[in-house]
């Protein structure tokens, strides 16, 4: 049972890394949103498994929040937003898929190298979870860096946050209050970003962040 719970936890956390990679090469926006929903589903499964293994019922609440908020509400809202903004046919081409994937693999390797010795004393589930969570965080950052479309950047940010939740649940004893407040802050961030997206769009007729810089003053 011990062995099995460990393997299952690894499977789910590894699944998140895999889905992160899927997000990296998804260059159509609607496809990206679907993959993001899948990312959140895997996260909630992983958290639920942790809840079961650690016998910590409050983690089930976390899993439910992840499922409802990140796998359903946010993707659906983003979906509507994309349709209203009319950018669902846009295709992003930033860098090549190949180099991006290679960089992502490098990042995963790096996080393994960093975390495994650093958390050597922690129990195995937490240790490998931490390493995989760091990979997810770095992949989310990589996505924010490589994308130009504001919506893809928001998705990158959300997947980064998923990585944080994964790390937090892997390490035992994060209080529920913290988890709930983090979830709600993400929701608030999402709302603010949504409002901004429409404002940006209204002003500049685009949500390409590159275009914002063209309007900035003081450039040499």
């Amino acid at each position: 049972m011990e062995r099995f719970s460990l393997d299952a936890a690894h499977l789910l956390a590894g699944g998140m890394v895999l889905v992160s990679f899927m997000m990296l090469y998804q260059n159509r926006i609607l496809g990206l949103l679907n993959v993001f929903a899948a990312h959140a589903v895997v996260l909630s499964l992983s958290v639920a498994w942790q809840a079961y293994v650690q016998a910590a019922p409050h983690l089930f609440v976390t899993a439910a929040i992840a499922l409802i908020l990140k796998a359903i509400i946010i993707p659906v809202a983003l979906h509507h937003m994309v349709l209203r903004l009319g950018v669902h046919r846009d295709i992003e081409t930033v860098g090549g898929i190949g180099p991006t994937m290679l960089m992502g693999m490098g990042l995963v390797a790096l996080s393994m190298v960093v975390m495994l010795p650093a958390a050597a004393e922690a129990d195995p589930i937490a240790r490998e979870d931490l390493a995989l969570a760091l990979s997810v965080i770095l992949l989310g950052l990589l996505m924010m860096v490589t994308r130009q479309n504001a919506i893809s950047q928001v998705v990158g940010f959300m997947s980064l946050e998923n990585g944080l939740v994964l790390a937090a649940t892997g390490a035992r004893g994060m209080p529920l209050v913290v988890e709930i407040s983090v979830a709600f802050s993400v929701l608030v961030a999402f709302i603010v970003i949504g409002v901004f997206l429409f404002r940006i769009r209204e002003r500049f007729d685009t949500i390409d962040t590159q275009a914002l810089d063209d309007f900035r003053e003081g450039r040499e």
Binding site: L141, M144, V145, Q148, T209, Q210, L212, D213, R216, G218, R219, E220
Partner: peptide, 9 residues
């Protein structure tokens, strides 16, 4: 002072 958002990220 004059980088794009992506460059800062």
């Amino acid at each position: 002072q004059f980088l794009t958002i992506r460059s800062y990220l």
